[in-house]
């Protein structure tokens, strides 16, 4: 319309748009309601099953056995890609997503979080297995006898094998 001077229209565009940048951090940032930020693990709910560890693509969540009878779930924000897959797979909804993203710090330890679980001990061999909470969760969800859950997987297997043996032995006796 303005022919060769059409490019001057950019001034109109600028005037219409106004000032769009913000004086962040003095003004709040533009983060939508659906933004995925840092996760928070509720240690009262967590049972230490490790589903989140298996699902986590960048290994931001890892689990290791430490010290005398403890299993530790570690979350390192530095590796986290904020995909929230852990939230999807957690069987007890212990992980909650937040909209937090201002995570810069001058102390790398601030980026670490951990949930410490007491491991269950086997009533038969006193060996350590699973966690106390996971044991409770299994008993609550599945109709398995306490007698069975109280033993570590190895003792359970041995018990089963012995039972087979006994039966076979009994049969041969008869």
């Amino acid at each position: 319309m303005m022919g060769k001077l059409g490019f001057v229209k950019i001034l109109v565009i600028a005037a219409e748009a106004g000032r769009v940048t913000r004086k962040y951090p003095y003004e709040p940032p533009l983060v939508s309601s659906d933004f995925r930020g840092k996760i928070e693990i509720d240690e009262t709910k967590c049972i230490g099953c490790g589903s989140c560890v298996l699902a986590c693509p960048p290994n931001a969540l890892v689990m290791s056995d430490e010290g005398e009878g403890y299993r530790v779930l570690k979350y390192f924000v530095g590796r986290c890609i904020f995909c929230w897959r852990c939230i999807d797979v957690c069987p007890v909804d212990a992980i909650k997503g937040t909209r937090e993203f201002e995570l810069a710090t001058d102390n790398v330890e601030d980026l670490d979080e951990a949930v410490i679980h007491k491991r269950a001990s086997c009533t038969e061999c006193n060996g350590l297995y699973s966690t106390v909470k996971q044991k409770a969760y299994v008993m609550e969800k599945a109709p398995i006898t306490e007698n069975y859950v109280d033993k570590c997987p190895e003792c359970r297997r041995n018990k089963l094998l012995r039972a087979f043996e006994k039966r076979r032995g009994g049969e041969s006796l008869e």
Partner: peptide
């Protein structure tokens, strides 16, 4: 609008 202006 922007493209119009830019190509001008």
């Amino acid at each position: 609008k922007l493209v119009d202006t830019m190509l001008g």
